Amino acid sequence: MTNDTMRLLFLLALTGHFISGFGSVAVAQQPSEFSVMTWNLEWFFDNQTADNPSELGREKSAPSRGQWDWRRDRVAAAIAKVQPTVVALQEIESQNVMYFLTRAIDRNHGLKYDDYVIKGEDFYTEQDVALLATTTTGVQSISRGVVTPSMKSRGYASVSKHLFAVVEIPVNGKTELLVIANCHLRAMAEKGELRAKQARTLGLWLERLMAGVKASQEIPDQPVHVLVTGDFNTEELAGKISPDSDLGVLMSRGNDDPSDDLVDLHDYIPAQNRTTHLLPGRQFDRILVSRDLVVDTPGVVDVSLRDVTVRSDLNFGGDQDTQDEHWNNYWGIADDQRDISDHNPVLARFQIQ
């Protein structure tokens, strides 16, 4: 190798280029898949209770450091097994526990994720929501909405646990944007009317966020997709959704224009595999997307749905816990048999081709 060649290789290295073989520069490989997983981790609280002002928060914290380590590492292993691009989590305690989780994913599995949390307003349970994203994923912004007294007087309801993010998806040398909403709506079957009001609120915030994203685009006609996910606590079943229900309002984005309705990805899961909760048949945890994410346009490189699954295998320790064991004797179950949560994660994979 001549001195001139050595100098060229050195300069290329300094400027961030990587050499593949002699005399050729490798281009960064474009991803062929983008995936999102949602999971309610059910009281994912560490064992440190000094930062829990509520009695309920202290009661639901892990009883010991060893038990917290077990749960943190089980969740880390589950995420590492499927390696989603973005993970939407519910019932997490704080950004501290997300930091501990991402460090465990890195330490135990060599995978790097960034964590995104903005403290919410559920002061009774202290539960919150969070997003994790691979460190190579471009997260442009995160935000939360605020329900003002004026909004409440017009029929909107507070959504104490939610988080928005604007995420970049590399597609064929260009960048498309995905607006993500991660939310945890009010529990209990009889609270459907309240959840419908929360859905109206989310629809309004989404409309404003989308308008802001499109107005600030540097690239004209840059595609902007929508994904709304989380624990909706809905009683509505896939394929049987009432338009006036909580999920119906959420899918319509709170308006009468059907052209921007969201698609329930549970429709793409076989009926016998749709349950996401310890309560039989319940489909609380969902992923809703804009229609453009389920349509693969012929002859065009785009982002489109590959598959969606309820991944109970990531959650179960052995056979699924019984309700009595899980809710009344959780830490009495053997470590190798105990489920992580009373919710199962839902994973959606999108192909880029």
Results as ranks from 00 to 15, higher is better:
residue 176 E to I: 05
residue 202 L to F: 09
residue 216 S to R: 15
residue 183 C to P: 11
residue 213 V to A: 01
residue 164 F to I: 06
residue 212 G to A: 12
residue 191 K to V: 00
residue 168 E to H: 10
residue 211 A to L: 12
residue 211 A to K: 13
residue 180 I to C: 15
residue 161 K to W: 03
residue 181 A to V: 05
residue 204 L to P: 11
residue 215 A to M: 09
residue 210 M to C: 11
residue 176 E to L: 05
residue 204 L to I: 14
residue 169 I to G: 00
residue 186 R to H: 02
residue 163 L to R: 06
residue 169 I to P: 00
residue 214 K to H: 13
residue 208 R to E: 13
residue 164 F to N: 08
residue 202 L to C: 05
residue 185 L to E: 00
residue 166 V to Q: 14
residue 173 G to R: 03
residue 219 I to S: 11
residue 163 L to D: 08
residue 160 S to R: 14
residue 207 E to T: 14
residue 184 H to D: 08
residue 183 C to L: 14
residue 166 V to C: 08
residue 203 G to C: 13
residue 181 A to R: 03
residue 210 M to T: 14
residue 162 H to I: 06
residue 217 Q to S: 15
residue 172 N to A: 14
residue 194 L to G: 00
residue 178 L to I: 04
residue 208 R to S: 10
residue 190 E to Y: 15
residue 193 E to D: 13
residue 174 K to Q: 12
residue 195 R to Y: 07
residue 203 G to V: 04
residue 191 K to I: 00
residue 164 F to H: 12
residue 209 L to P: 07
residue 159 V to N: 02
residue 174 K to H: 10
residue 176 E to K: 09
residue 219 I to F: 12
residue 209 L to E: 14
residue 169 I to Q: 00
residue 171 V to L: 06
residue 159 V to E: 03
residue 207 E to Q: 13
residue 185 L to R: 01
residue 159 V to A: 01
residue 198 Q to I: 05
residue 194 L to T: 03
residue 173 G to I: 01
residue 187 A to R: 01
residue 181 A to K: 01
residue 215 A to L: 11
residue 203 G to T: 12
residue 177 L to P: 01
residue 175 T to F: 01
residue 188 M to Y: 13
residue 203 G to S: 11
residue 193 E to Q: 10
residue 161 K to V: 05
residue 213 V to L: 08
residue 160 S to I: 09
